[in-house]
């Protein structure tokens, strides 16, 4: 069972790491705050979700899967909220 899920698990984790790497590159290379946020929030959430999915395949246990799901949910909610708050603060600063 675990051997069967080993390969897809590793592939999913590698895909997640690729997303995270792209997010880091975007944060480093993009010129202004808005495009950096754009790169960071989406690629980051997707990367963490893929890594968690891969880890679930590797452990193949339901209780660990629930904890990982909770992690992904919290990362998604906090990422979306902080992204919104940072963008909002920037818009308010440029208005005044």
């Amino acid at each position: 069972m675990t051997n069967l899920l080993m390969v897809p698990g590793l592939v999913l984790i590698a895909a997640g790491l690729w997303f995270l790497l792209i997010a880091a590159l975007g944060l480093w290379q993009f010129p202004d705050l808005m495009s950096r946020l754009h790169a960071l929030t989406k690629a980051d959430t997707a990367g963490v979700a893929l890594v968690a999915l891969g880890a679930t395949c590797l452990t193949a246990s339901l209780s660990d899967a629930v904890v990982l799901l909770l992690c992904v949910l919290l990362v998604a909610v906090s990422g979306a909220t902080t992204g919104h708050l940072i963008a909002r603060a920037r818009l308010k600063d440029t208005e005044t």
């Binding site: 909610v77 906090s78 979306a80 909220t81 919104h84 708050l85 909002r88 603060a89 308010k92």
Partner: peptide, 10 residues
């Protein structure tokens, strides 16, 4: 109050 309306759903 400047944080806006996204804090409540969060």
């Amino acid at each position: 109050d400047r944080l806006g309306e996204m804090m409540l759903p969060c």
